[in-house]
Amino acid sequence: MASDTGKAALAALDTILAQEPEPDQDLFSKTIRCLSVFRNALIETGQRTHLAHVNAVISVVMAGHFPLGKLPWEELHKARGWLAEVVE
């Protein structure tokens, strides 16, 4: 379960990085939803080892969805790497 939702979140994030949409687009929202489900699954299945990493990814994707300045593309790429480590 957690693995599936994690992969869905990673795929959504990959789509963002490939398309580089403007911040208010549905892609960010979709990614956030996937990540939230993934995080909840980690909690419910007791896989807390990776929780801090996933929460950090959520923070960075939220920063892309609702930026205070420019979109943090560099950090989003880093976050993709963190997520990939957890999922893969």
Binding site: S29, I32, R33, L35, S36, V37, N40, M62, A63, F66
Partner: peptide, 21 residues
């Protein structure tokens, strides 16, 4: 440290997306 806009409107969106518990 702030990462983004955490004001009420974006956080309403985030609530709908399931970010906050």
């Amino acid at each position: 440290k702030l990462t983004g806009d955490l004001s009420q409107q974006p956080m309403t969106m985030a609530m709908v997306d399931g970010v906050m518990l």
